[in-house]
Simulated assay, not measured.
Amino acid sequence: MNDDFSHHDHTVMYISENVPGPSENSLEYNKIVEDFNSQLTNKCNCDHVCEPPICSCLQQSESRNYVVSDSDKNLFCLNETRMKDDAISPVIECNDLCSCDANCGNRVVQKGPLKCLYVGMCTNENKGLGLFCNNVIPKGTFVCEYAGEVITKAQANIRQQHNILNGEMNYIFCLNEHSNDVITQTFVDPSKLGNIGRYANHSCDPNCIIVPVRVNIPIPKLALFATSNISPHTEITFNYGSSNSTDLVPAIVDRTKCLCNTSKCKGWLPYQMF
């Protein structure tokens, strides 16, 4: 992975990929460690580049994950069907065991974030820092990963309560994946260990979407993809909510005001119940 970014805040450690959270004596934590030490065994035997239906990795994904961009033949963008809410088939990239080369069109997220990204102060200074781009980002382009500590649900709740009591920013992202009537949750917290993705702010009308992508191990990467063409010096945003987010919250919850200032703004940041 090529990631040359860093944090100006020295209290935050830069990591390019997810890492396990603090040790716990629990089955959930043991499963996290086990998954980090695992290797996806499926591999393809493709020559150079992968094409459906021959590639076994694309067979697992049930379709082509990425397509060649109309504006740049060297750029692979997320397949349009992957941006829909009902896109339930997994995005699985070719891994270290595969025989295809580095130019394979099924190797995108693993290559790292766009080089044109930078961190800057938002127009509304109350938002603080945000993530921006120097160049045009075509629709479907992989922007960066939202990487941090992969923690248990118990640890996520502890940290969320700490953030509420101390008035600190909450960076925890809860990914809910549905399969065969089972919901699998992955909690990622880049508050103290994270990559450049931690600076991407919420918007009720975002220009990016989070897509879980698996490379080498079972734990998904939270990959940001552009859902529209993004102009230079535009802020990179995504919706912090999920299918479990709600506008009906307990009266005792102190909601955080949304500062996206878009025509679709709901007034408050999404409230997520783990």
Rank of each mutant, 00 (worst) to 15 (best):
K257C: 11
P22H: 13
R107Y: 05
S231T: 14
G128A: 05
L78H: 08
N95I: 02
I217K: 06
N18P: 10
K264C: 03
Q185V: 07
K127N: 06
T227Y: 00
I210G: 04
T11D: 15
V253F: 11
V253N: 00
F132V: 10
S231L: 15
C122I: 14
R255I: 15
I230P: 01
V182K: 12
K115G: 11
T81G: 08
A154I: 08
I196P: 08
E149S: 07
S242W: 07
S69P: 10
N135H: 05
C265V: 02
M13G: 11
Q161I: 04
I209D: 10
E125V: 12
H162M: 14
A226Q: 04
N30G: 04
T184A: 08
H233E: 14
C98D: 10
Y146E: 14
V68F: 03
N74Y: 03
T81I: 14
Q60L: 13
P206S: 09
G241P: 05
I92A: 01
V68N: 10
I32M: 13
L75T: 13
E235C: 12
G148N: 14
T234Y: 01
G241K: 07
G267R: 02
Q110I: 14
Q160P: 01
N124T: 08
A102N: 10
I151D: 03
N157A: 14
N163T: 07
S99W: 00
N42A: 12
P52T: 11
C208L: 13
P52L: 15
K266L: 11
H48S: 07
I32N: 01
L193H: 14
N166W: 00
N74H: 05
E62Q: 13
P218V: 01
D247A: 07
F36C: 11
H7S: 02
E93M: 02
N134Q: 15
E28N: 06
C265L: 03
N74C: 06
V253D: 05
H233I: 07
C208W: 09
S231K: 15
L78D: 04
N103H: 12
C104T: 09
I183T: 15
Q59C: 05
S16P: 09
T234R: 06
